[in-house]
Write a protein that binds this DNA or RNA. Sequence first.
DNA 1: ACCTGAACACCGTTCAAGT
DNA 2: ACCTGAACACCGTTCAAGT
Lengths: 188, 188
Amino acid sequence: MPPSGRPRADARANRLRLLTEADAVFREQGTGASLEAIAKRAGVAIGTLYGHFPTRRALLSALMTERNEAVFAAGDALSAEPPDRALRTWIQLTVTHAATYSGLAALLADGTDDASSELHASCVRMTEIGDTLLRRAIDAGTIHPTTTSADLNTLTTACALAREHTTAEQADRLVAITFTGLLVRTSQ
Amino acid sequence: MPPSGRPRADARANRLRLLTEADAVFREQGTGASLEAIAKRAGVAIGTLYGHFPTRRALLSALMTERNEAVFAAGDALSAEPPDRALRTWIQLTVTHAATYSGLAALLADGTDDASSELHASCVRMTEIGDTLLRRAIDAGTIHPTTTSADLNTLTTACALAREHTTAEQADRLVAITFTGLLVRTSQ
DNA sequence: ACCTGAACACCGTTCAAGT
DNA sequence: ACCTGAACACCGTTCAAGT
């Protein structure tokens, strides 16, 4: 059972500094970075980090919270766009999101199926939004009707994973190629 | 300078058993598996493993040698096939190859650009074969002419990486989608 | 209620001693 | 020439003691 009432002021400050430094370190070194290093940069002992975030994934999850909300909101807003443009923008959005830190895409990919992962809920939410946009695009007749929600997830995961091994430009080209592969082939 | 003449019989036997067990362990646990475990299963001390294979990549490289030759030969043989079918088969082949062990695709992706990697030479060779098949398919008019050799590498890497996070069926669907994205869009 | 940091566990890598 | 395995280094994680 979590402690009730407001947390102590120093605890709040420590939590905030841990998140700030974790973001910086994960950006530089990926999600596998040393937790010791993060604690040291935040000016706290390693035990304090574990006190706030019992697992690496819990830390990552806390770090992604704000960003998640932004992506969810953007996804919902895409309902106003033309179906195929909306889907394409969504793919670009989620790929970039999953590539925030090197190593994150793999955790998100596994988080979709692993209900015990702290990242599971946000993965499910993303899948739902993607599914809505996908169905709309299929109904509009621009996306191949056999495309599944799982395809969309796999495709996003693949592009995000690949992004860790090439330039952003090359990764964008892959997104473009893959999206083209989803389109219904009409006489041009 | 390497030792001249034939290696000692026991050394040869150890090397062979190390390769056999490494293959089994990497298949089960991926390329990050414990080298201690491999040595133990092969019935030798950890120092013996390091004596034969100074780095994890050297061990992987030795492990891939035979398989590499098979893939190169298959790639060369594809010159006899219709250009687009040949390219598609090549993509499937290389994706499967890069997904032999979980974690291998990432090493191969980095090995292409890292000349100091023991896996570099085979990566370059694969790129060459892919490039030949790609140009032929472009010349035949079935593949979009702006497609580059780098696109092919990124695409293969992406599919192989994704394969570690889904079923083989789902991964095959991704290959199909991506390949469709390469095709010149004609009136069907 | 929260923080500290020593202690423990685990694993990769090296190298002096042995055969 | 090759093998052994103890020794070292490094890092993730826990938890008793402190404030």
